[in-house]
């Protein structure tokens, strides 16, 4: 690998934060839609909470992405080729495919969001409400969860499919790592929202925690595998601030501590006040870890 390959100079507070916010939104939407498709009414509270947070969160994505551009006013060139006005699409570029996936995902997240509002009677006079029908919501959920998985994972492919030494050396695992991290941070965001709106008693804890445990184990395994396959190119992840963010934030706070707490919580009495507060704290840690995972990988690849 060629150390002379230039770093893109992506700012962590734009690009890595987009990777994080997009991942949380997509993770929450995917959990919401899969819980609805597989679980139906039983996991209704998970679905509605996920749909309610997915759309507002994804609204943060375009400003973050556009702010990092050298020519922000030309952002629409991603969709329309500036010389002809025809749609612009490049199957080889994860950035091009990702822009379209983000658009599809955003529309589906909006439709599911509105659908929930109509169902709960919060929107009555909108045209959408007049033609309200429960059937299309399954279509939104299927298309949206596919696009959501894409939004969660393509950001990792963006990093892997470059010639920068660390990013190229971690190929092909970062996409899968970001999918797992999106699922764990999405679950944490759903849990925190339910705690804030005091709807936690309606949550099927056992099923939710089992899912959470699985995705965190997957995330931990992939994070370790990423460092292993990177070999000597993993050096930027082993020293300095990036090491602190990766090992202390992403690995320890983001997966190991919540997994340990999840395991202990499984053995304590349900509905325990103290245990609830700890789970809330764990959800905050998972979100922090997910953000530090994106920041450390984006920054370490540009050292």
């Amino acid at each position: 690998m060629n150390p002379e390959v230039h770093a893109p100079g992506w700012e962590w507070y734009y690009v890595a934060m987009y990777f994080f916010v997009g991942g949380v939104s997509a993770g929450a939407y995917v959990i919401a839609s899969l819980a609805e498709l597989f679980g139906g009414e039983k996991h209704r509270e998970v679905s509605r909470t996920g749909y309610f947070i997915a759309f507002p969160l994804i609204l943060l994505a375009p400003p973050l992405l556009i702010a990092d551009l050298g020519r922000p006013e030309r952002f629409w060139h991603l969709m329309l080729y500036a010389r002809s006005g025809f749609p612009s699409f490049n199957i080889q570029s994860p950035l091009s495919v990702g822009s379209w996936a983000l658009l599809v995902y955003g529309v589906m997240a909006l439709l599911s969001f509105l659908d929930n509002m109509v169902e709960e009677g919060k929107v009555r006079n909108a045209p959408f409400a007049r033609f309200y029908d429960r059937r299309p919501r399954k279509v939104y959920a299927v298309v949206g969860s596919a696009a959501g998985f894409f939004v969660a994972g393509y950001t990792g492919v963006v990093l892997d499919v470059t010639a920068r030494p660390l990013w190229a050396a971690t190929d092909p695992l970062v996409g899968a790592l970001f999918v797992a991290s999106s699922a764990s941070t999405g679950a944490a965001a759903i849990f925190l929202t339910m705690a804030a709106y005091k709807t936690l008693p309606k949550l099927h804890r056992a099923a939710f925690e089992r899912f959470d445990r699985f995705v965190m184990i997957l995330e931990l395994a992939l994070a370790l595998a990423v460092v292993l396959i990177a070999g000597k190119y993993a050096a930027p992840l082993l020293r300095g601030i990036n090491a602190t963010m990766f090992w202390g934030g992403a690995v320890l706070a983001g997966t190991i501590v919540p997994l340990a707490a999840n395991w202990f919580a499984g053995r304590s009495a349900p509905g325990d006040r103290i245990s609830d507060n700890i789970v809330v704290l764990m959800a905050v840690l998972v979100l922090l870890g997910g953000a530090l995972l994106r920041i450390s990988l984006v920054q370490a690849g540009q050292v």
């Binding site: 100079g9 050298g70 991603l78 470059t162």
Partner: peptide
Amino acid sequence: QDVCIGCKYCIPSCPFG
């Protein structure tokens, strides 16, 4: 130059820097 938006993705994609 009139089409480029400055996303900078080509920069790490060049194997020669």
